[in-house]
Design a protein around this nucleic acid. Structure first.
Length: 876
DNA sequence: GTTCGCTCACTTTTT
DNA sequence: GTGAGCGAAC
């Protein structure tokens, strides 16, 4: 297995690091002469431990828009906390309990994780055990006890979202120390920060640009072509994957193990890697992997720089440690040489990114890497009911490679995890949709309902169904805003305006919209640029002075260059948002989409407007561009009360009252490719994914599997997932299928031959004839539950007038749908003939209005009945 | 240089 | 069933 190889590489690299003279003088020894790395903005970091006034004490004002009661975990009022922490910051050495109100309400393990500040600590934090709270409180504690300045704490996360959340929570605990924590961020953002300071030491200028995956691929293609390789046989995508893999493991081209060079293009892989890196340097650019890899190189080759950072960071904290890859691990280890106070928080059972280079071993091995490590297990779960935890724990127990933890709760057992068989993916969507609708009528908030799928193609069935029944939903983790074509194009225009040396962005838009500059012209510019060692933009400027290009292309290119020069001259003279609008208009980019009659064109124009709106949050164009590659995760569009649909991967870290887990079928989940490609470890990762899924649920978890599924246009029968069988019986309830209509059921009993892994206790469920329907015990329990729920929920009056059980018994869901629509809203404000925009179907004209239900004739020719909340008035 | 039509693949994707 | 990417024809 590839695993051993990885270990080997890993260990070798670590040993290499050990050979370097990284050992530091004892803490407190003065750094002699070492120039401190360009940090005028921060206090010196070689002061004695207790800063006298790390920062000006804050006035007792809660942050705007944030009331103390919203700060869920902290008891007491905000004002008191603020004044106490201000006092603490003024230098009390060992705080007594009443001075550390933020410690109140922690359970003993959490408290230990917060207070055990000296030496390495591994916090194994199971799902829902208060991981973030421990992390943030620990930082607050370090700051409040005066152990370190905010600038001496390194705290890394994986996502911007997690970093933001931590900043907010620490801010509310300590009272606004947030700006004072320059080293709280993602691995990548901190990597960039360090790299910009010392860029010249690794052959970059500090203004280097960061390639997005798109640029990366474009460059990769060029490298492959330059090596005269057949680009069909050796796709750039694959090369990108191989190189990313190496970078994840901290391998520069010279370190790639000889055996692996043959992974790509018959031994050319490493050569291409080196060539690619060379091109990056020429372009003064980094890809995401480099942000860490170049850090490593910097640290290895410049021990003095490393030593500065080692001295600086007195406390190191890492979130989601199970997701770190080798490069991140090495980075951390180098930095941690200066201080034993490393605290890693993670959960080996939630490691689901192995395929992207994450090394569960990092967490499994922690106590060997950091001798004397103190391991704390957080097992008290505050999220889920007993049955949900029981089911999840029972499932994950089948994994062998784990440190072992057992979640428990003092709360109620709640409902058992429901497992049901459905005929096919369509019925799955239908029955889940109906189920959600039923709960919704009983006052269930849709924001507390999630559907977690294994693969994104599963989402379509749900979207289709929800659209036709008018159930509001949002898809989380689809193509992100900044990944959309129009956004990337627009950013490319802005980037080239601000920074004409960005060749990849220049290439992206040189012929968008089409202006007659095809491959040949671009290639000419490219060649000249390479030959002279100048940016393409400059080369383009030269080439239009020559006869080299045809008249048409020459004029187009010269016009474009002149436009860019003009836009650049306005830079700083007009507001950057105005400039952006100007650029988009004058370049013909907006016009291009206006002329486009595809259903998405309107949405794209909206997105462009949204982009300009978003730019207002930045002072300058450069400021905006600086952030864009690394941190452009705008809030998901579509607020309001909606069901969330997302992949299991996207769900990590989230929680919902009700969680649906559809598609538990062999081949889909566990996914066949995971089994084929990584065997046992792949299976275990899939199982962890299942574990993550179940533990997202606070109150109800509902698993289903379809007996037939449409994949690749083919209808194929499927077997229930082995994970279904692995669920402990005590915590599971089998729900009989409850669909009287749809005659297709008659004959499926016989189709369930089971071969791949033996008998399933769910075989019985499938083979039972569907009799009794709504009279079965399962259904009645469900009904009973419904009633319990509705009498328990207090608010939301109008919706509860409708009594679900009686109606449902007599009528099919279609009628119920009618009821929902009539009761949930008044008549629509849309009128016949109005132009509307639907997020999925595009533009259309309203041909009929019935309550809040619209019949729309879409421009695509389709005619659909859609609930009005799903459309917007078309602008323009 | 652009467009059309064919072929291929189709798990997950924090930065 | 669908979209992306590429080659051949216009």
């Amino acid at each position: 297995m590839a695993h051993t190889g990885k270990h080997f590489a890993n260990a070798a690299a670590v040993d290499g690091a050990d050979e370097l003279p990284f050992d530091l003088p004892p803490r407190g020894a003065t750094a002699t002469g070492a120039a401190s790395p360009a940090d005028d903005d921060e206090p010196p970091f070689d002061l004695p431990a207790a800063p006298r006034s790390a920062q000006p004490p804050r006035q007792q004002q809660p942050e705007p828009g944030r009331t103390p009661s919203q700060q869920a975990n902290a008891p007491g009022d905000g004002g008191k906390r603020l004044s106490l922490s201000a006092r603490a910051l003024q230098g009390s050495a060992s705080p007594r309990a009443e001075q550390t109100p933020y410690l109140q309400g922690l359970n003993p393990e959490q408290r230990e994780a917060v207070e055990h500040l000296d030496g390495p600590v591994l916090v194994l934090a199971g799902a829902g055990t208060g991981k973030t709270r421990v992390l943030t409180t620990r930082i607050a504690h370090i700051l409040a006890t005066g152990r370190a300045y905010p600038s001496q704490v390194l705290a890394v996360t994986f996502t911007n979202k997690a970093a933001r959340e931590m900043k907010e929570r620490i801010g509310s605990l300590v009272g606004g120390a947030v700006e004072g924590m320059p080293w709280l961020g993602t691995f990548h953002s901190i990597g960039v920060k360090i790299l910009r300071r010392h860029a010249e030491l690794v052959g970059l200028k500090s203004s280097f640009t960061i390639l997005d995956p798109d640029d990366q691929l474009r460059l990769m293609k060029q490298v492959i072509e330059a090596a005269r390789l057949d680009k069909d046989r050796w796709p750039a995508r694959q090369l990108a994957g191989v190189i990313d893999g190496w970078k994840n493991r901290g391998l520069t081209p010279d370190k790639v193990p000889a055996g692996e060079a043959y992974n790509f293009a018959a031994g050319k892989g490493v050569e291409l890697y080196a060539a690619y890196q060379q091109r990056l340097k020429e372009l003064n650019a980094c890809d995401f992997g480099d942000l860490l890899l170049e850090n490593l190189r910097l640290f290895m080759e410049h021990p003095d720089v490393l030593a500065d950072y080692q001295r600086r960071f007195r406390y190191l904290l890492v979130d989601e440690y199970q997701d770190t890859n080798v490069a991140q691990y090495l980075w951390l280890r180098l930095l941690a040489k200066g201080s034993p106070n490393v605290c890693c928080v993670g959960d080996d059972d939630q490691s689901i990114y192995g395929w992207r280079g994450a090394e569960v071993d990092n967490i499994l091995r922690f106590d060997k890497d950091f001798p004397g490590a103190h391991v704390i297990r957080l097992e008290r779960n505050y999220r889920s009911t007993g049955h949900i935890l029981g089911a999840a724990s029972g499932l994950i127990a089948s994994n062998r490679d784990r440190l072992g933890k057992t979640l428990f709760t003092d709360g109620e057992d709640g409902n058992k995890v429901a497992v049901s068989a459905v005929w096919d993916d369509e019925e799955e969507a239908r029955s889940i949709g109906d189920d959600i609708e039923r709960m919704h009528k009983n006052g269930q908030k849709l924001n507390e309902v999630a559907i977690l799928v294994r693969a994104s193609f599963q989402m379509r069935a749900f979207e289709d169904r929800f659209i036709s029944m008018g159930l509001p939903y949002r898809v989380i983790g689809g193509p992100r805003f900044y990944e959309r074509q129009e956004i990337k194009d627009a950013i490319a225009y802005l980037e080239v305006t601000a920074n004409p040396t960005n060749d990849l962005k220049f290439e992206r838009i040189v012929n968008v919209p089409k202006r007659g500059l095809g491959d040949t012209s671009v290639k000419r510019v490219h060649e000249l640029a390479r030959a002279r060692g100048i940016p393409m933009y400059q080369a383009a400027k030269m080439i239009v002075e020559t006869e080299e290009l045809g008249g048409k292309a020459r004029k187009a290119l010269s016009d474009l260059i002149r436009s860019f020069d003009r836009w650049r001259s306005r830079l700083g003279h007009i507001k950057h948002t105005e400039l952006a609008e100007l650029i988009l208009d004058e370049s013909g980019y907006t016009a291009m989409w206006q002329a486009d009659k595809s259903p998405q064109a309107q949405t794209r124009l909206e997105n462009l407007k949204e982009l300009v709106r978003f730019m207002h949050e930045f002072e300058t164009l450069e400021g905006f561009l600086e952030h864009i590659t690394l941190v452009m995760d705008t809030e998901q569009a579509g607020d309001g009360d909606r069901v969330s649909v997302m992949t299991l991967h996207a769900a990590k870290g989230l929680e919902f009252d009700n969680v649906y887990l559809p598609g538990w079928e062999e081949g889909l989940f566990p996914h066949q490719r995971a089994l084929d490609e990584t065997g046992q470890s792949g299976l275990e990762e899939e199982r962890r994914l299942a574990y993550v899924g179940i533990t997202r649920a606070k109150r109800l978890a509902k698993i289903s599997f379809a007996q037939n599924r449409r994949t690749r246009g083919l209808y194929q029968s499927a077997l229930p997932s082995r994970f279904v069988d692995e669920l402990p019986e005590d915590h599971v309830e089998i729900i009989e299928t409850k669909k009287p209509f749809s005659g297709a059921y008659q004959n499926f009993g016989g189709t369930f031959g089971r071969s791949s892994y033996g008998q399933s206790r769910f075989d019985d469920v499938q083979t039972q004839p569907f009799e009794g329907h709504y009279g079965t015990p399962g259904w009645q329990r469900a009904q009973q539950h419904t009633r319990d729920q509705s009498s328990a929920s207090s608010s939301s009056s109008a919706k509860r007038k409708w009594s679900p059980s009686d109606q449902r018994r007599k009528r099919g869901p279609l009628m119920i749908e009618g009821e929902l629509i009539a009761s949930s809203s008044d008549s629509s404000s849309y009128r016949r003939g109005e132009r509307v925009l639907h997020q999925k179907f595009g533009l259309g004209t309203v041909t009929d209005v019935d309550g809040n239900k619209l019949t729309i004739e879409f421009d695509s020719g389709e005619r659909k009945r859609v609930v009005d909340t799903f459309v917007d008035r078309a602008s323009g």
